[in-house]
Amino acid sequence: MIREGYINAIVLFGFLLIPICALIIEEPYTITLATRAAVLALAAVGLNIALGIGGLVSLGHAVFFGLGGYAMGILAFHAQNYIPVELGPLTINGTKSMPIIWLTAVLVSAFAALIIGLLSLRTTGVYFIMITLAFGQMFFFFSISWSAYGGEDGLSIYVRNVFPGVNTLVPIQFFGLCFTALCVALFVQSRLRASIFGLVLNSARQTPVRAETVGLNPMRLKLLAFVISGAITGLAGALFADLNRFVSPTMFSWQLSGELIVLIIIGGVGRLAGPVIGSALFVTLEHFLGEFTDFWHIWLGLILLLIVLFARGGIIGILTGKDGPHV
């Protein structure tokens, strides 16, 4: 069997090699597909921190993805139309600067995760799943009714935002930004998993009563993991909106939350490169099978079914011969 560290290196190297080869043979659309996969993988990495380490099955993580997207959309919309943002007594001009937009998306998503986590973590099991789903639906229908920013039709951004020293309109350069963000998120997850925080969080996930006995606070640990998870997913939402130059209420949909969970399960729950493998497979099936049928999700469902029945550790679990954490 192959060591997981080698698999992680091979997956990331292969993922980087695809757009480089596409650049050589002048296939810019393939680079765009790779960028989409990188952004979805980044969102799934965020969820994987809550799910894989904390054991929190959230059906509302699209809230943070959507908030990140709308943070980007609103700031860019006001910048391109020279309309100031009115926040009570504060008046803030919009911006096309990616670093500022990313910081805003992370802070907004982290704050939302803090509030949602404080309420949701009072419950466990299926009740936690349902309350996160409820929050997701609340934000979804609010965005539909938010006519100032397009409502159900969404909001278009005509020109991609800017990053110092990078031409973001060049596909390979924008991919580089997204891939770098993904690598940073994977590094954060790896450090969290190996840190004392990751160990005590894993202990709180498996045996919360014993964790409380030794003086740990499982809710506080899970809340911190939930906030970090939401912040990373919010960053992915901002990048996704920039990739498409469009934001819409579908970014808050529960189907997106479910897809992120599916990506993690396919690759391997709690596995470092699990979301990367899952997102790459998802985008590949969506692109190639989607050309022949609108029902390509059937094949994705079949793969998921086989993994759940015969490979609980996902694709990485098959390669390493080890199951992932049980949630």
Rank of each mutant, 00 (worst) to 15 (best):
A50G: 11
I53F: 09
V57P: 08
S58T: 03
S58E: 03
S58L: 04
L59G: 03
G60R: 02
V63L: 01
F64M: 07
G66H: 06
G66I: 05
L67F: 12
G68D: 03
G68W: 01
G68Q: 00
G68P: 02
G68N: 02
G69S: 03
G69V: 05
Y70K: 02
A71M: 11
M72L: 15
G73H: 03
G73W: 04
I74S: 00
L75K: 01
A76E: 03
F77H: 11
F77N: 01
N81S: 12
N81P: 10
I83P: 07
I83K: 11
I83Q: 13
P84K: 02
P84W: 00
P84E: 02
E86D: 13
L87V: 11
L87K: 05
G88T: 05
G88A: 07
G88M: 09
P89G: 07
L90Q: 06
L90T: 06
I92S: 09
I92V: 15
N93D: 12
T95N: 07
T95Y: 08
K96M: 15
S97H: 14
S97D: 13
I101E: 01
W102A: 15
W102P: 07
L103C: 13
L103K: 08
T104W: 09
V106I: 15
A110I: 04
F111G: 04
A113T: 04
L114T: 07
I116L: 09
L118Y: 11
L119I: 13
L119E: 06
T123M: 12
T123V: 13
T123F: 14
T124R: 15
G125P: 03
G125C: 07
V126D: 13
Y127R: 13
F128C: 10
F128G: 01
F128Q: 04
I129L: 15
I131A: 08
A134V: 07
A134C: 13
F135T: 00
F135W: 00
M138L: 15
F140Y: 14
F141N: 12
F141T: 06
S143P: 08
S143I: 11
I144S: 10
I144W: 06
S145H: 13
S145Q: 14
W146G: 03
S147A: 15
A148R: 14
Y149H: 10
G150I: 02
E152W: 10
E152L: 09
